[in-house]
Simulated scan of single mutants.
Amino acid sequence: MPELPEVEVVRRGLAEHTTGSTIVQAEVFHPRVARNQLGGTVEIEINLAGLKISEVKRRGKFLWLELADAALDPTGLCLLVHLGMSGQMLIKDPEAPRNPHLRAKLELDDGKEVWFVDQRTFGYWWLGELHDGAPTKISHIAPDLLDSQADFAAIAHNLKKRSKDIKRLLLEQEIVSGIGNIYADEMLWAAQIHPQQRADRLSIKRLENLLECGREVMIKALAQGGTSFDALYVNVNGNSGYFSLSLNAYGQTGEPCARCGTAISKIVVGGRGTHFCTNCQRRR
């Protein structure tokens, strides 16, 4: 599933190509795209036509298009996009060959189209209201590691109250968002913390360092276009990211740790394959 860096790469691409454009027509080709929409497919198709895209924003693994009227006055509405396991938001010319997994599209007044391609159909679109700058549907989602408003000290204290394995907590989007399996492994490796270490047994200082390591990992991943293991994650132009070449833990089972040379091990934590160094990341 695309995590924060991958979704941010897509957000930046959409912002570059769509900000200020008017939606001429919206079409939904698969009912699962609108499965969370009161009113279904018709609600999206009818109400998007004629609105302008004023901004493209993101929180964690979610992105949304903020919508304005013809005079660029805010409508208080947004189109929320969740990419799911395989969703892609692509900028296309109308003449482009149709993708067999095209689930929805926006036609813009400059002749471009925005395609939502989703092979596994776990992603969705949701048209709804904004509240305090974010879609009401994701009001429970916490700030992410790249959010300028994220309070690492407060997040660390929140984690410290929990007796769960630290990796399980990192994947809970209500505490800190945007972290999935790949970046949880990478930030734990960087901070030298065992993925099964109970959060309440870590000091506030180590927890804050973990969050800082996570921010650094995300920034590095962004610089390399995110992580792609197959053709399912691409940016708006259809290009893959190459942060997979810089991974130190995730997917590196049996490879020597870049820090100490010990072979990277793999276990299962919370049903997720988890990669770590038994020497550098000892459980305490």
Rank of each mutant, 00 (worst) to 15 (best):
R206M: 03
K92H: 12
L80T: 12
V114G: 05
A150L: 12
L171D: 07
I264K: 09
E55R: 15
V24M: 10
A26D: 06
R215T: 11
A221T: 01
G50N: 08
N158H: 13
T278G: 15
I46W: 00
G133M: 08
G261Y: 05
L4R: 13
N181P: 05
S240C: 05
A191D: 07
E16A: 15
R201L: 06
Q196G: 04
G178A: 01
E107I: 14
G270S: 05
N158T: 15
I53R: 02
R58T: 06
R58G: 07
Q173V: 14
I204R: 07
F229W: 04
L130F: 00
K160C: 03
A249F: 06
E208L: 01
R98P: 10
G225F: 04
R98G: 01
M1L: 09
G273Y: 01
G178M: 00
D147R: 03
C277D: 11
M187F: 01
P195L: 02
Q149I: 01
A190N: 05
D69M: 12
P135T: 02
W189Y: 11
H17I: 01
C78S: 15
M85Q: 06
L210Y: 04
S139R: 12
P143H: 02
W126G: 03
L145I: 09
A221Q: 06
A249I: 09
S163Q: 15
D230T: 00
